[in-house]
Design a protein around this nucleic acid. Structure first.
Length: 457
RNA sequence: GCGCCAUUGGUGAAGUGGUUAACACGCUGGUUUGUGGCACCAGUAUGCAAGAGUUCGAUCCUCUUAUGACGCCCCA
């Protein structure tokens, strides 16, 4: 059997509906904020990521899918979205647009060659947005609030926003030096990983799980103490604007982010629900004022955010958020003989084009089995086509929940269903997931209303 | 890249170095000449991730590979 590649996922069935719903919320919200959809290639020149993300970061040195194509070009599957967007911004001379800033969002697959684990796949889907061409703290606040609001629109409640400022490049550099100076005499008190980090990426020591409780970490110099006046004012302004937007946040000096291109505002949004693995960060972002110039474009201040959709789906599940997913169909047509089959085929088409969700039998099952099929597909109404009725220009339609039947004229079927289904929609609002059908394995813990469990009660 | 555990039918899974691999759900057919969901009866894995080895004999032991779960590094 040919299997899917390691760390990749097939998304189908109900889960696919959840993903599509999330996509629709993203599209809708982005539209309100006036961000335009941007679609850039999944393959980019390897150099883009080396120059953009930083050739010393792990994500570039050991986590990319690299290959040489038939023309001898060095290609990399994008590990994140920002570099490609900025490349496109430069290549298409969007910086010349008098209506700067350019506000864009993307939603697509990224690739990282890593060992899969909870909340981490090799192929991941991220959505994200960028504001290119504004240094106003208002854009920082807007990006953070937009991220939060998308989560809220989806129904997530247990989220936490952590923000920090790395300051401008001057502040950031100075801080890095101070941090190394501070930790060096205490190197033996640090864990093995942190000893490595000291030279490579000292900021990440602050985020270490092993050493987290040690005094040496608690007393370490904070990024915020090293901000110059301008950077500090800027950060305060961001907080000021977040307060205006009534976005709750915490200042967490340990948020440093992994990619080299960040400066000033950085932030992460984490899920606070029980049951999440160690990878509970839903999304993160920050300001990257130097990236555009680094990639050969004009010096353009930018800020962005990206979020993993897979983790988002997990968070929604763990929070038990009820999404308005349509899982039932309006009408299922049953038939036995060829004449009835043809009419089912015809009627299904007519009703589908009239706007109803209609399905019928595809495998010539017995009538009994067709009833079961209708139940499996959650048909609200069923109709057993009967040659005799059809010849009389009639059809019997049964409400599959109440079992009430009506014999109606074929000419009236659209009108009939329209009226009936509107009333059903009212019922759906009162529908509780407690009413789900038991899958037979009692995995529901007896909370359902299936026959077996009702008897037990 | 490192570590740890796992991989049995459509599904959830039990199980053993030795004839026919439990049980449940599901599915198919029948009891019921075209109106089911209940009940009863029958059927439903030539195979226990793949390959190699040990053995008289392996799904069960060993090794390799693949994949999955979780953790580390790192990160969304």
């Amino acid at each position: 059997m040919i299997q899917k590649q390691k760390g990749c996922t097939d998304i189908y069935g109900k889960e696919a509906k959840i993903w599509k719903f999330i996509d629709s919320i993203i599209d809708m919200t982005m539209e309100k904020y006036n961000y335009n959809y941007i679609r850039t290639p999944i393959i980019e020149a390897t150099e883009l990521f080396h120059r953009g993300i930083g050739s010393t970061t792990d994500i570039v040195t050991k986590e990319t899918y690299d290959f040489v194509d038939r023309g001898g070009r060095d290609i990399t599957l994008r590990p994140e979205g920002t570099a490609g967007v900025v490349r496109s911004f430069i290549e298409n001379k969007m910086y010349g647009d008098p209506s700067l800033p350019v506000k864009v969002y993307y939603n697509g697959t990224m690739y990282r060659y890593e060992r899969p684990q909870s909340g981490r796949d090799r192929e991941l889907t991220q959505f994200g947005m960028e504001i290119l061409g504004s240094d106003d703290p208002l854009s920082d606040a807007e990006i953070i609030s937009l991220a939060v609001n998308i989560y809220k629109m989806l129904g997530l409640k247990e989220i936490k926003v952590n923000i920090n400022s790395l300051g401008d490049n001057e502040s950031r550099k100075k801080y890095r030096e101070e941090l190394i100076k501070y930790f060096k005499p205490h190197i033996n008190e640090l864990c093995e990983d942190c000893k490595e980090r000291l030279e490579k990426n000292p900021l990440r020591i602050l985020d270490c799980k092993v050493d987290a409780d040690k005094d040496i970490l608690k007393n370490a110099p904070k990024t915020l103490d090293f901000l110059n006046e301008k950077s500090r004012d800027r950060f305060e302004k961001v907080q000021d604007y977040l307060d205006v937007l009534e976005i709750k946040y915490e200042i967490n000096p340990n948020i440093v982010r992994g990619l080299d291109y960040y400066n000033h505002t950085v932030f992460e949004i984490e899920a606070k629900v029980e049951g999440f693995g160690s990878n509970n960060v839903l999304g993160g972002g920050g300001r990257y004022n130097g990236l555009c110039k680094e990639l050969g474009g004009p010096d353009t201040p930018c800020i962005g955010f990206a979020s993993g959709i897979g983790r988002l789906v997990t968070a929604l599940e763990l929070e038990n958020v009820k999404l308005p997913i349509v899982e039932d169909i309006d009408l299922f047509l049953l038939y036995v003989n060829e004449e009835e089959k043809k009419y089912a085929l015809y009627l299904a088409q007519e009703l589908r084009l009239a706007g109803f969700i209609v399905d019928t039998e595809y495998n010539n099952r017995t009538l009994k089995a067709q009833f079961k099929q209708a139940d499996r597909l959650n048909a609200k109404y069923i109709a057993v086509l009967n040659s005799e009725d059809l010849n009389n220009n009639e059809i019997t339609i049964k409400n599959n929940k109440t079992k009430e039947e009506d014999i109606i004229s074929l000419d009236m079927i659209v009108y009939y269903l329209d009226e009936k289904l509107n009333t059903i929609i009212d019922d759906v609002n009162d529908f509780s997931y407690e009413d789900h059908e038991c899958d037979g394995n009692h995995s529901c813990g007896g909370n359902c209303h299936c026959h077996k469990h009702e008897e037990e009660k």
